[in-house]
Design a protein around this nucleic acid. Structure first.
Length: 302
DNA sequence: CACTTGACCTGTCCGC
DNA sequence: TGCGGACAGGTCAAGT
């Protein structure tokens, strides 16, 4: 579920919360999430300072001043949640002090004591005792440590298509990439990260609804003007979702443990059996490209 | 080569 | 109430 807008929201949060901090220790209870028992972790992570947080497609890149980078993929249920260091004075005046230090109602404060939980896979502790938790209920996500200058050549990264919110993602670029997949269903192609990077199930359904294209329509049967509309809508939907802090269906939260509100604005996703906002026809849930797919059978013509 | 299916996992929900 | 099975969906690998 974390797609581009969710991962970008996490990135922005981490940027303000952990850049400049030094990693004191790391613990992992699931080696497939991240194996911390390696010489590279000892040499290039422990004691290193976080210099920047970047994003590419759906992965977070945490750059360290050691010249190494932690690449983190949240897959479906991953979370990166920051918890500030505990106050020394946990007296009755603690409430007031918290507000002074973190601002009124800072959501991270309420997380203390709730994390780690049983979904916690990796724990990063900083020198000031604040902590970053990598939680992942379904254990599909992963953390990798690579040399910063080799990030781009990582197999996973090197295959990725253009970032839809970058200037490189022009209609001509989009159109050119679609021409190589003319016989495929449009939704399957939107989900292909080598065509464009960052769209997943939610924003595929939403952008296809917005451009009145049926998800199972093969590309060669879609008019150029519809594809032009789709290009515009992909960008619009992703930007709108970033504004709303992303989509929270079940698991997703940002670096402050907060949910996103985009689904309140969604037109079809998770709205099966409800009326289409455009024509009133009942929205159906079908299966396309092996995924649950939400569609208005009337105004998204086949 | 294009496309589909299975694997990786856990938690939730549905029907019996 | 309990229990099996379907489902949730990002990505890779294997199969058709």
């Amino acid at each position: 579920m974390p797609e581009l807008p969710e991962v970008e929201t996490v990135r922005v949060g981490l940027q303000s919360l952990i850049v400049g901090k030094t990693i004191k220790s790391i613990d992992s209870n699931w080696a497939k999430s991240f194996s911390v028992d390696t010489p590279e972790v000892d040499r290039f992570v422990i004691g290193s300072k976080i210099s920047a947080i970047r994003r590419r497609a759906k992965v977070i890149l945490i750059d360290l001043d050691s010249g190494y980078t932690l690449i983190i993929h949240l897959k479906m249920t991953g979370q990166l949640v920051f918890v500030p260091s505990a106050q020394k004075n946990q007296s009755s005046k603690a409430e007031g002090r918290k507000e002074e230090r973190f601002g009124a109602g800072h959501p991270n404060d309420s997380l203390r004591g709730k994390l780690p939980d049983r979904s916690t896979r990796v724990t990063f502790v900083f020198n000031d005792k604040s902590t970053l938790y990598f939680n992942d209920q379904r254990k599909f996500g992963w953390v990798k440590l690579v040399e910063s200058q080799k990030v781009e050549s990582q197999k996973f990264i090197s295959k990725l298509g253009p970032e839809p919110l970058s200037d490189d993602f022009t209609f001509d670029v989009f159109y050119g990439r679609l021409q190589k997949r003319k016989g495929s269903a449009i939704k399957a192609v939107l989900l292909d990260q080598s065509v464009l990077a960052g769209v997943g199930n939610i924003y595929a359904d939403e952008s296809l609804w917005a451009s009145s294209i049926h998800p199972s329509e093969v590309i060669k049967n879609i008019s150029d003007s519809r594809l032009k509309k789709l290009h515009t809508e992909i960008i619009y939907v992703l930007k709108l979702s970033i504004e709303k802090g992303g989509s929270t269906d079940k698991n997703y939260v940002n670096a402050e443990g907060k949910k996103g509100s985009y689904l309140e604005f969604a037109k079809v996703f998770r709205r099966e059996k409800l009326p289409c906002p455009r024509c009133g026809t009942t929205i159906e849930k079908i299966r396309v490209a092996g995924r649950g797919t939400h569609v208005c059978p009337k105004c998204q013509k086949a």
